[in-house]
Design a protein around this nucleic acid. Sequence first.
DNA 1: CAATTTCGTTGACACAGATCAACATCGCAA
DNA 2: TTGCGATGTTGATCTGTGTCAACGAAATTG
Lengths: 253, 253
Amino acid sequence: MTNNNIISFEHVKIACKSCTLNSLCLPMGLDQGDVEKLDAIVRRGRPAHRGDHLFREGEGFRSLYVVKTGSVKTYIPSEDGGEQVLGFHLPGELIGLDAIDEERHHCSAKVLETSAICEVPFKRLEELSLTLPSLQHQMYRLLSKEISHETDMLALLGSRNAEERLASFLVSISDRLLRRGFSATDFYLSMSRNEIGSYLGLAVETVSRLFTRFHDEGRLKVERKHVELIDLDGLRTIVENSDHFVNKRKRAT
Amino acid sequence: MTNNNIISFEHVKIACKSCTLNSLCLPMGLDQGDVEKLDAIVRRGRPAHRGDHLFREGEGFRSLYVVKTGSVKTYIPSEDGGEQVLGFHLPGELIGLDAIDEERHHCSAKVLETSAICEVPFKRLEELSLTLPSLQHQMYRLLSKEISHETDMLALLGSRNAEERLASFLVSISDRLLRRGFSATDFYLSMSRNEIGSYLGLAVETVSRLFTRFHDEGRLKVERKHVELIDLDGLRTIVENSDHFVNKRKRAT
DNA sequence: CAATTTCGTTGACACAGATCAACATCGCAA
DNA sequence: TTGCGATGTTGATCTGTGTCAACGAAATTG
């Protein structure tokens, strides 16, 4: 307890076993002793800052990363500086799973705000998961969950209009923040309108107009990054009632 | 060798170790003895027919499925008979990976043409993968590959126009058929225009018009399900040269 | 085999959302 | 403090693709 910086820095380096995220993250389902074995291979670095990269497209794959605090985006850059945003990652979420197959990163990961990140060397995680059945199981679950989540996004991009996309985005952020112990209705978005638009397959202007529309309809209050959801149920209704998939049939086949 | 039906039926029941797909499928990287252990848990059923379901949305998860011959689509049904197609699955591809996490299927899987399907009970596969490091590794790789593939689809749906989407679809089918030893330029599509449209986030009419346009431009010959790619390189160019991601920046940040 | 349904194609038209443009505001640097 | 690029908002306009409609051909049914 020499000074505040050191105290807060130590706080960031908290071990898995006392991390509040351990029910969302890799340690889920592991008993005390096993968590310690996992702890032994996890690297906890200095806080990362806005704009830092965890990895870039094309780099060799060595580690998975877990957001402990803050947020990260993954995206595919194009030569001319454009980019396609693939996802936003909140505390407890694993990043880099798509690189296991070819041992090469297919996208870049950039920190959106000051964040604490855990690095998990994959080779060692893989070895450990051979000896810890519940860790292997959790790995399968986390990989599967990622597939599920992307599947949901495919359905979103394949068959929903702009309003439904933004509503779905807000509800998703809200749900994920709530699970992590934050407010479900009052939060700061760490990503720009541009990034939201890219993620949702919409132009920036459309995103901006929709925020304004939702505001005018009394569904939320928004002032730049700060969002306060007033009618979360209404937003959920927009998401759920949108059953107008493109290809309807007279009868099920 | 009593009659032809029995011969061909036995042919379908070929073991993993002599299956031509084993370099794409679960056995990849396993040595002879390990493949036999895997063989012991794989179930090979009667041929499945067009319209058969491997599983339906909401059902409990027990097994993964692998296409041995033929093709399968996965999709999310909606009450009114509409559907969002999530993917088309060719020989060697695993189906059902999204269900591991919650032990429940989030989508339905329907056979598109007479197909041979291997069923792999997941519990037993998981147990086996604890004792066979290369099988565990292959599982991680296959799950990761699925994530990569869906990531590519997200980028496609998020930032490409109709022409690029159909070109990308045709190139993808072509590549995958080639890897499996089929012609890369001459094939039958087992899915309808409707299903292609749903998969690509386009209306049926748009898909139809694009086939006609590609035909008129001399890129391919098409007659209903039968497609002959004449200018595969041209189609690849359409896919690769489309760097007009929605959100461009003056400089990278 | 005719009857019926499904599927694919084509044309006319409409509209959601992209694009272009102008401007306000923010945040950072000097 | 001023300047300036990045970001966000709003309005006007354009356009790619969806929607609606009609029709022929193929597949399915009885």
